[in-house]
Amino acid sequence: MRSLFSFLLVLSLAALSGCKPSEVALTAAVDTATNKKITLAFMPKSKGNAYFVSCRQGADAAAKELGIELIFDGPTQPDPAKQNEIIENWITLGVDVIAVACESKDGISTALRKARSKGVKIVTYDSDANPDARDFFVNQATPEGIGYALMDEAARLCNNSGEFAIITASLTAQNMIEWQKHIEARRLAKYPDMKNVALRPCDDLKDKAQAEATILLSAYPNLKLLMNICSPAVPGAAEAVKQAGKSGKVKVIGLGLPNENKRYVKDGTTDTVILWKTVDLGYLTVQAATALAKGQLKSGATHFEGGHLGKFKIVGDNILLGEPFKFTKDNIDQFDF
């Protein structure tokens, strides 16, 4: 047994050192090949998530149009450590550009910085890394855009006056506090007759949102609308309104995914679900990443021509996807995520 063990050690050392010459040869061969064709590695937070599956549809379409090679890989479950490992593997694989939706900002930035130091271009989309770890962030929605869209839609449904309540995930979530600030700013500026009577947290749970909504419905009999700014709260609030028999009388809107709200949108309980077109997000990300790799997109640019989707604004190092999209009874069937 001892001899077997030492044999193994020797073998593994030999494998490590013996690889050097072939590495040089291989690297050279692949590099001349990639001068012609760009390799783009595209990572979701998790592969099974319907949201990212639809991002991929757009990414595939863009890759086909541009004639580049697209590698799509990521953790099967949201797992920041696995994201790091895949990025480190992509560096040694010799990809030209990486597009990634980051599960953990600080965790992934180490690996991304390493990639940049080896000359790999980095684009983040959906959720950003630290700014010094990437070249551009494809920003699907600014806090301002989300806040304004929610408030405008609420005012439209209430004819510009009446009471509404907000259900959020937690009172400390940074992004939601930011959205609320813009909702309030918009209300003050444009809809002074709208009155925000309550703000309740639901811990990002559908059940809790349903319970909170039920309490709000009985505590505020004049309530005209429930605005839900975390995705589980939208179906949660809709279920509460439906069970209270107030479908149509108390409106429900919010940020969420079309699929989990389809039922309530179709039966008229939920009026509008606000999000962005995820297919376009994937498409724009691949367009921008490819342009970056080819040197056509440089820092300091103020706009970007994103294939068949047209022109996009760039603010700082954020490429903006634009206004949020409204899913309603009329169009929700066209989306599956």
């Binding site: 490590l16 690889c19 072939s22 590495e23 480190e88 040694t92 010799g94």
Partner: peptide
């Protein structure tokens, strides 16, 4: 395994990659 991936995998048999395998 090593032979197969060296022949058909992209940049499998490199020092960088074996370093990665050990690190991970």
């Amino acid at each position: 395994e090593v032979t197969y991936f060296s022949l058909f995998g992209r940049r499998f048999c490199t020092v960088d990659n074996f370093t990665n395998i050990v690190r991970h």
